[in-house]
Design a protein around this nucleic acid. Structure first.
Lengths: 187, 187
DNA sequence: TGCTACATGTAACACGTTACATGATTGT
DNA sequence: ACAATCATGTAACGTGTTACATGTAGCA
C-alpha cells in the first residue's frame, strides 16, 4: 500500500517543463503554448515562470539549448539526467493546493447575495459545464483516433476523463442546487 | 442573462472574513477555526491573512472590535456598512484560479512515472474520495435536522452538495482510469 | 509598409503560508 | 505545576502573475 503524497514545498513548474520537453523538444514559447493547449484544463504556467526555469534547468544540465530555426530562438532538449530527474520529481510527495473556490464562497453567503443572483450564477455555471463536457467528449473521440497506438495515449485519456467527469458532476450539482434554491419571483 | 464574473484583482479574504462575521461575531482565532471547519472543503485562510484583514476592515469601519471574554481578546462584529460592503464584494466579478492539479499533472506524464505507480495514486485517491463522500452525505443529513428552518441552510446544503458530487465524480473517474491503465504485473 | 505571430527576458507586485514571538486562561 | 488551548501579531519566504521592454520573421 503506497502512502499518498503529502507535504511538498517545492514548485511543480519543473515537472511541467521537464515533462513537456520529455515528450518533445521545443522553444520556451512553444512550451507555453503546449501547456496552455494540452494541459490547460488542469495546469497553467506563465512566461515569468517558464523562462527562469529553463535557465535553471540548463545550468543543472537537465536540459540543453540547441540553436533553433532562427538566431534569436533556442530549442530545448531534455538530457538523460533530465529524464531521470523528471522520474524523481514525479514520485516526490505533493500537497493538494489549499482549496479556494470563489463560486462556492459566494453561494455559501447566498443569503447576503440574494437567491436570484445565486440562481444566475448556477445557470451560467451549468451552461459552461455543458460546453466543457461536449469538448471533453469530442477530444477523447479525436485522440483515440489520431493518437492510436501512442504509448502516451492512455495517460492523456485519463486526464481528459477527469475533465469529463468533473464537468458532468458540475451539471448534476447545478441542477440539484437550483432545486434547493427555489425561484422566488416565479412563485 | 447575467454575465459570468470575470477579472477580479482583489483578494477574496475580505469576503470570507466579512461573511463569517455576518453570520456570527467572533474573535480572529474563532474565525479561523470556523473557516477551517465549516468552509474547509472549498476555502481556507491562514492567520497571516486574517489578522491584517481584521485590522484593515476595522480602520474602514466595516467591523468593530468589542472587548472579549478576556482582556487579551477582541470579538469582532460586522457593522451595517460592513454588511453593505459584503453585498457589494459578493457581486464583484471573480476569476476562477488558474488550474493546478498535481495529481493530473503526474498522471499525464504517467509514462515516465510508471503504470504501477499511477494505479497506486488512483487507488489511494479513490479511497479518499469514498471517505469524503460518506462524510458529505452524513453532513447533509445532520444539517437538515439540526439547522432545520435556518435561512442559511439551503445555501450550506448547496456547498455540501458540491462536495458530494465532486467526490462521487472522483470515484467514477478513478474506476474508469484504472480500466484505462491495465495492471501489467497481474498480467 | 505594417500587422501578426514568434521569441526572450525581467521587474514590480500580489498573495498566501510558515515560522516565530508572545502571552493569558483553563483544566488536570 | 504543567500542558493544552486560546489569542494576537509579524517577518521572511516562496511562488506566480502582469506588465513592460525588446526584437525578429513572415506575410499581405
Amino acid at each position: 500500500m503506497p502512502e499518498m503524497p503529502r507535504a511538498g514545498r517545492r514548485s511543480q513548474t519543473e515537472i511541467a517543463v521537464l515533462g513537456g520537453l520529455s515528450i518533445q523538444s521545443m522553444t520556451g514559447y512553444a512550451l507555453r503554448e503546449a501547456i496552455r493547449d494540452v494541459l490547460g484544463h488542469f495546469w497553467s504556467e506563465s512566461f515569468g515562470q517558464i523562462y527562469p526555469t529553463l535557465s535553471a534547468l540548463t545550468e543543472q544540465g537537465l536540459i540543453v539549448a540547441r540553436p533553433g530555426s532562427r538566431p534569436s530562438s533556442s530549442v530545448f532538449e531534455i538530457t538523460s539526467a533530465g529524464r531521470q530527474r523528471l522520474h524523481e520529481l514525479l514520485r516526490e510527495p505533493f500537497d493538494a493546493a489549499p482549496p479556494r473556490d470563489g463560486l462556492l464562497l459566494r453561494l455559501f453567503f447566498g443569503r447576503s447575495l440574494g437567491v436570484a443572483y445565486c440562481r444566475d450564477l448556477l445557470v451560467t455555471t451549468r451552461a459552461q459545464a455543458q460546453v466543457a463536457l461536449a469538448e471533453y467528449e469530442e477530444l477523447a473521440r479525436t485522440l483515440t483516433v489520431t493518437e492510436a497506438g501512442s504509448p502516451d495515449l492512455p495517460f492523456t485519456l485519463v486526464t481528459v476523463a477527469a475533465g469529463r467527469h468533473s464537468a458532468a458532476a458540475r451539471i448534476a450539482w447545478a441542477d440539484e442546487a437550483l432545486a434547493l434554491l427555489p425561484d422566488e419571483t416565479r412563485r
